[in-house]
């Protein structure tokens, strides 16, 4: 702008730059020092094991004959492995059925609590959250007992009213039984996330809506849910990851329902069985890598999809 002030400003500017760069350098060093502990842990606990798993996955190890390099054969094998694909298929069903149910309930509860109409909402909030505080292992053991076909309370209840008790642990119903356990465990957790997001919506919006004569349902549908969309997305992504990583539940239910839980019931459980029962660490590493890639892809696709629809919405609003 003012060209005449340039010469005068130059030296001052230069020293400022020099001083700034010195302090900047110090800041950068400090920043690196601050992130160093993280990177050390990140490298030793994640990157190195990951690299090692990747390394393992391109070998084949035999009890007789030892180790040999086989390139991507383990990956190709996984693509035609009916047990692995079956596990993935099962998890896709799980994702499509259980996740909407769980998040639907969680959202409903969060909205109900947030509406302030329920009495003792603090106590209820805690109550809904309690199952999440129960360790997954304990929850599965507990439900396993409830499901028991001979002496489980559910079966006894059925028999008490003269009905045939359904076998909740046979191969047809085990997926549903697992969904039920997972839903019970995680509704409260997701509810808390959504509830916290709901609490951060500015109250003015409600006032404005009330002046416009909007009903509570209308407010929930048009204000609350759109406002907490990021939180909902967060729970969706968490649920996708959680679904594909299901392990505790099948591994514990295996003791009481060994015929229903196959070695490849969930992909994660399958990887474990390959590594520690079949002692094929190499193939297990390949399966684990594929599983990780699959989770990343699905999560990314879901996120991309919502971003696009958000953009579309914003455009429409304009």
């Amino acid at each position: 702008m003012a060209t005449s002030s340039l010469p005068a400003a130059k030296p001052a500017g230069a020293t400022r730059v020099r001083r700034a760069s010195a302090s900047k350098r110090r800041q950068t060093t400090a920043a690196y020092l601050f992130v160093l502990p993280f990177f050390v842990v990140f490298a030793t606990m994640l990157v190195i094991p990951l690299g090692y798993a990747g390394y393992l996955s391109v070998f084949k190890s035999q009890l007789i004959g030892g180790l040999s390099f086989i390139g991507l054969d383990n990956y190709l094998r996984a693509f035609t492995d009916p047990e692995f694909l079956g596990g993935i298929g099962r998890m896709v069903i799980f994702l499509l059925v259980q996740v909407p149910i769980m998040l639907g309930i969680a959202l409903g509860l969060a909205l109900a609590l947030d509406s302030g109409r329920a009495h003792g909402s603090k106590a209820l909030r805690l109550l809904y959250f309690v199952p999440y505080a129960v360790p997954g292992v304990v929850a599965t053991l507990m439900w396993g007992y409830l499901y028991g076909p001979d002496f489980g309370p559910i079966s006894q209840l059925f028999r008490a009213v003269g009905l045939d008790a359904p076998n909740l642990l046979d191969s047809q119903s085990i997926l549903g039984s697992t969904m039920n356990i997972v839903t019970w465990e995680f509704v409260g957790y997701n509810m808390i996330i959504l509830y916290a997001a709901l609490r951060s919506i500015p109250a003015e919006l409600y006032e404005a809506a009330a002046i416009d004569g909007a009903s509570q349902y209308r407010i929930a549908w048009s204000i609350k849910i759109p406002a907490i969309r990021p939180a909902i997305m967060l729970t969706v992504i968490f649920s996708i990851i959680g679904t594909f990583q299901l392990f505790n539940e099948p591994s514990l239910l295996d003791a009481i329902a060994p015929t229903a839980i196959t070695n490849g019931f969930t992909p994660n459980y399958y990887a474990y069985n390959i590594a520690f029962v079949n002692q094929d660490v190499n193939y297990a590493a390949a399966v684990a890598f594929l599983l990780g890639a699959l989770i990343a892809i699905i999560s990314y696709v879901v996120q991309l999809g919502t971003q696009r629809s958000e953009r579309k919405q914003r455009k429409a609003a304009r």
Partner: peptide, 10 residues
């Protein structure tokens, strides 16, 4: 870091 970690792993 990642690179050297991978080398270390190998």
């Amino acid at each position: 870091l990642v690179g050297s970690a991978a080398v270390a792993a190998l």
